[in-house]
Each structure stands twice: as C-alpha cells, then as structure tokens.
Design a protein around this nucleic acid. Structure first.
Lengths: 262, 262
DNA sequence: CGACACCTTGAAGAGGTTCAAGAAATGTGG
DNA sequence: CCACATTTCTTGAACCTCTTCAAGGTGTCG
C-alpha cells in the first residue's frame, strides 16, 4: 500500500485532543516518560525498570508551543530532538528566494528535529498549527543512551529510517501523481495516523489551511479547494470547512492507485 | 544555497572513473578500509589505529554489480548498508500500479540501503547505471561499532540525517520549481558532487537516461530534452548526448534561484 | 462591527504532457 | 566486423491539467 506520510510509530494509543491538560506554569518542566501515555509511541518496548529510569533522565523537559509559533527554525543550533505530546505541527523548508515547501505534518508521538543532526544546525522550520506540548530530548543524551541500550539504539535508527522512507513516498506523490490522487493519498494517510491514535477512521479535522496542504502536495490552494469540491460532489467525502467526513475510503484508495482512467 | 541532492560527504577525494581496477575474481572478497582511498568519504576522521582495525572488521566484503543489475530491491531482507566504491546507481520506489519514481542518484563514497532499517526490509530498489563495486557493511556490526566508538555513532547519525535533508531539498524542487529550474538545480548538484570527487567543475557525463532524469525531477523525458535544448540554445551548456559542458554555471544558478521573471 | 484570514468558484492562460515521427547511438548475433 | 534490432534522444503540434487572476462569501477575532 502506498503511504506517502507513513506514521512514525504503528502502536495505536488513545490520546486526548485538548492541548493543555498538564499543569505547566514555567516555560518548561521536568517530566517522566515512564508514566507517559505516549510511551509506546516514543520509546522502544520491553525495557526493564532500570532502563526506563535512564530514559526518564533523557526526556527531562517539556515545552509548550503556542499556535503559530516556531519550535525551531532554519539555522538554529541543533541540540534537541522533540517528541510531540499534544498538538500538531508543520515543518517546511524555504529557499533564498522566499519559496516555501511544507515537508510534513506531525502529530502526537512523532519526532521533530532529525534534520539538525547532519550539520548541528536545523535546516528546516517547525511551526505549531495548534497549541502544542513537546518533550525535549537532548541528542547527546540520546546518543549516550543508545550506546548503553541496544534496543534504544535500534529505535533511534528506525525513527530516522522511517523518515527517509516517508520522504521517498512523498517524492513518489510529488513526482508522479495528479492533483486528486495527491489529495486522496494525503487524506488517507492523515486519517490513518489519527486512527492509530484512537481517533475516528472516517472523520478528521484539518489543522492546516488549504494553502499549507497545497504546499505539501505541490499544488495551489485553489486546486486543493477544487479537488475537495470534486470529492464532495462525487460523494467520496463531506467537506465542511476543515471538518472532513470520509464516506468512501475505498474509492479514495482507488483514486490513489489507478494508473490511468478517469 | 538550495541543494536538492546534497553530497553525502564534503571531503574532496580524487578517484578513478574506471569501474574494475581492483582485482576481484569471486563474487565478493575481503578488503580493508584502512587503506581505501575513499575512507575519508565513508568513515569518520581522527580514529586511532585500533579503531581503524575495528572498522576493517565491519567492512569486510566487496561486491561487484554489473550495469543494469539490482543491488537490492523492494521487499528484500535488510542486512547490509552499501558504500559505493566505484560506479553509479539510481534508487527508485514503485507503487502497486507500476509507477516508478527515481528517488536519487548515488556515486562513489555515498551510502545505499538506509531505507531498509525502518522495517528490516528494503522499500526501494537500487540499480547500477554502470558497472560498479560496493562495500558491504552488515548493519548489526555497524550498530555494535557505534556503541564502542562515539565518533562512529555520530557519523552514522549524520549520514542518515543528511539523507533526510537531501530529500527535503528534493521535495522543494518537486513541489515548487518549474521544469528548467529543476534541471538547472539537478545539473549543478551533480557537477558539484563530481567536483568534490576530483572531477571537472564544468564537464560531466550523465550516467542516466533522459527518462530517469525526468522521473527524478517529476518531468517527462521530452520535457527534459527540451530543457537541455533550451539551455544549449541560450549558451548555458553544450549538450552532446550525455556529455554536458557547463559554460555558465552562474546563469544556471540564477535560473534555480529566481522567484519569477523569464 | 469591521478588518482580516480563509475558502470557493469562474474564466482565461501557460506550462508540461501526449502523440507522433525521425534520427542517432548502442548492442547483438551471425 | 558488419547488419539489423533496439534503445535513446530530439523536435513538432495538439491537448490537457493546473495555475493565475479575479470576485464574492464565510468565519473569526480584536
């Protein structure tokens, strides 16, 4: 199955959708992974309690990110990876001449910041599309821990490889699909990842604008809007602003998969 | 500077272009990194001799890959990363309906196979575009070594992150550039990477067909051909089949960078 | 309530694709 | 080593998808 934006982790875990349930007063506070309900999404399974304690010592801070504000930006020194606890992000790159390309949308349990490892500086930007909360994971601590705990090491490698595979899928999408195929693939991927987090298989709320979807899919916002209208007209989805109800995911899948025909 | 296909490693090292200088009779043979002239491209610098010995024990096999044959393919069990010694590869993904998308072109000193880590199986294919030779690096040995040698660990992380950053660049290219911008960016990137390996800054020989370039750039082969003709007509390059002579790299750079205008 | 961001829809236009034909290079087998 | 089949590349012309430009509508927030 084609999967342009594969989920960071497959383990389904119900999460709350509200942004600020954890009492946080300061800019960032100490937390413990060992009793985090997203642990299955962030960390390798089957660790003993000693290893869990070690991990608690890595993920020692949280940070709230207000809607619209940057988690990190191009050029910024890289020190942390970020695990999303709540909220929704977009990451994007910009060329000198001002063009922007959304490179991904990230949700709870997914990791941000991998781009920064290459040069010790971030090369893309990450913005919260709704009020969000992230765990800070100092990368040198992650590397230390990876040396001590092989399953942790393997986990880190898998997360990075998964991102490479995801981007391969996006290249396929951008390089060879038509507008409606792209949007269908996008919707299916999004609802899939939400479903893996305990949400509906058929309903979703878009956290991003048509323009941001368009940027991600290599389309103009008008084209995205028209494709939504076409899907609605054909009875594949109901579209009410950013509330999407998928009526015929089977037909959406057909659209993604077809080589030719209309 | 926009860089859709950033080089795997920046260290310039002269290499020979011929494919079969090393005497190899069997399918694969033992070799030593410690006296490989590509070591600077593949391995972290500043290792002591004991660490170099350890690395020699990782990269213990070479394999010849004939032009047109697969190094690995989608679905194949993942066990090794591959460091290219000589030759030129393309990697590509395929969707069920038969569409193919070239995801990258790789040359000496670059690493193939990172996609396989995520699921223990490769998700893309790698084909030699000319007779090639690769070093086999068993990934579990790489992980062992990474646990012992922090600079090795960091090196592996950087290689993976670099691939993520490269793909971000390709997404920008596919999502927001016009045909001629894409081809200009492609040529500049290719000649850059070749130059870092001791080749000319202005002359290059394409190892791939127009169709493969088109697949990578999200264009049809006719469009690629026309863009080449346009560049030649405008005096930016000389094109003789697959031999490209870049006359005005400054103007090529302008083409990549411009937001609008003609 | 007004300003602003976001979304939809129509009409015209452009860039790239598709289809087609021919030329040049490459490889194969005798 | 040559003849022939095949692959690769180029170029033209018609077509189509998506973009651009434009206008109007809706929802949101200070």
């Amino acid at each position: 199955m084609f999967d342009p934006v594969s989920k960071t982790l497959a383990t389904p875990t119900a999460t709350t959708r509200s942004a600020s349930v954890v009492p946080i007063n300061s800019h960032s506070i100490k937390v413990a992974c060992s009793n985090c309900n997203l642990r299955e999404l962030c960390m390798p399974l089957g660790l003993n309690s000693e290893e869990l304690d070690q991990i608690d010592s890595v993920v020692n801070l949280r940070r709230k990110v207000k809607k619209g504000s940057l988690l990190f930006h191009n050029g910024e020194k890289f020190t942390n990876l970020f695990a999303i606890r709540t909220g929704f992000f977009k990451s994007y790159v910009a060329s000198e001449d001002g063009r922007e390309q959304v490179t991904g949308f990230q949700m709870a349990g997914e990791v941000l910041g991998l781009d920064g490892i290459a040069s010790d500086h971030h090369t893309c930007n990450a913005v919260a599309l709704e009020d969000a909360e992230v765990c800070l994971m100092p990368f040198d601590r992650i590397e230390e821990l990876s040396r001590d705990i092989p399953s942790m090491q393997r986990h880190v490698h898998k997360i990075m490889s998964r991102e490479i595979v995801r981007e391969n899928g996006v290249m396929l999408l951008l390089g060879s699909m038509r507008a409606e195929e792209r949007l269908a693939a996008f919707l299916l991927n999004l609802v899939d990842r939400l479903h893996a987090r305990g949400f509906s298989q058929s309903e979703l709320v878009l956290r991003m604008t048509r323009e941001e979807i368009g940027s991600y899919l290599g389309l103009k916002l008008e084209t995205v809007s028209r494709a939504f209208s076409k899907f609605a007209e054909d009875g594949l989805v109901e579209v009410d602003k950013r509330n999407i109800h998928i009526l015929r995911s089977d037909l959406l899948r057909d659209i993604v998969g077809r080589t030719d025909c209309a």
